[in-house]
Amino acid sequence: MLASFCRQRSLHLAQYATRQIIPSRTFVASPVLEYAKHKNKSKIRIPSKKSLAAKVKRRAALQTKEMEKQERLTLADAINVLRAVEVASPNATYELQIRTVVGSGMAIPKGRVNLPREPKAKPEDIILVFAEGRLADEAKKAGAHIVGGLELVEQVASGRSLASTILCTPALIRGITPKLGRVLGPRGMMPSERRGTVTEDIAGYIARLRGTREWKGDRKGTIRTAIGKLNFPVEDVIKNVRHFLLSVKKVTGTEKDATTKGPKGETKTVVPITKVVLSSTQGPGIQLSDF
């Protein structure tokens, strides 16, 4: 019996010795595997400023081509289309958009107009005049709201003045320019002889302001203005549009029968008008073919 047990024990030991033991293997990140991962990983390209600018330019060119393909209508037809679109909104407003090409260093178009029929009440101009002595008295009698000399410079420079129009006499323009040139220049409010806001005829200038409102373009030279109401007769809207376009053409020098010579014989810079669009509150923008 003991011999049998010993044989069985020997057999078990032999089987255990011949058994194949497969050791467990743990996978760890090796430099080779890490290199392979980074090599196969897709790289994210960050576009340069130059390529982004070129992309924006291409998109703008495509958008311009698409807009040029749009059908253009005469002013009368455009009004009729917008009236049909806004049939449920008789108090909607017509808006006129005029696009001009303002080159580098060119002044933004700006002027005043008195429409035959205003679409809304005109805001009152707050007039500030730099004048002294007799001219200051004339400015007060003409209706100027704020009149004074160089003591008003700090008030204007600090923004405490709410004036919408600023006039100045020739005697004081050199005194206000150093401090107000950088403040009023970018806003288009700095008095200048070219615009007629530096003058001794203060009373006459204020008289011409009565009954008119100012229009001016944005930085890109686009002029926007309310031009009428949907409940206006079509003839009134047409008169307003023609009157406003004439005012813009005189300022930009694009009026066909207008001279392009300045007051001193200098050639006047012409600002081309590229597009005129009429729209309404809820209606589409319609390009005009007869401007």
Rank of each mutant, 00 (worst) to 15 (best):
K229M: 15
S164L: 03
H145A: 08
K43Y: 07
L13M: 10
K141S: 05
K43S: 08
S89T: 13
L246D: 10
Q155E: 15
I173R: 07
A142T: 04
K122N: 13
R99P: 04
G159A: 03
R134T: 09
S192M: 06
R72A: 13
V241Q: 02
E68K: 08
L152Q: 04
E118Y: 12
G149D: 01
E68C: 06
P123L: 14
G133K: 02
E151A: 10
I79D: 06
K220E: 15
V113R: 05
S280A: 13
K216N: 08
T64P: 00
L75I: 04
R213S: 15
A139G: 10
I98D: 03
V156F: 10
V248K: 04
G133Y: 05
S192E: 03
G188M: 06
Q63C: 04
A144T: 05
K264G: 05
R99M: 10
G262V: 08
R219A: 11
V276H: 05
S51A: 13
D137P: 01
P191E: 05
P119H: 10
I146S: 09
S10F: 03
S42V: 08
K264C: 03
K141M: 05
H38I: 04
S42A: 09
S158P: 00
I202F: 06
V102I: 13
G148R: 01
V153P: 08
H12T: 09
I206W: 04
N40E: 11
K275F: 01
A36M: 13
V270R: 06
I166A: 06
V102S: 07
I126K: 11
L245A: 07
S51W: 09
H145T: 11
G253Q: 05
V81C: 02
K239E: 15
P170K: 07
A139C: 02
W215K: 07
R213P: 04
V251I: 15
P263I: 15
R45P: 00
A131M: 03
A36K: 14
V276Y: 02
R99T: 14
A88G: 05
R219Y: 03
I227C: 09
M106T: 09
R72M: 08
A88V: 01
T199D: 03
I166T: 14
L33A: 12
A139M: 00
N80P: 00
I127V: 15
K250Y: 11
P116R: 03
L150Y: 02
N114C: 11
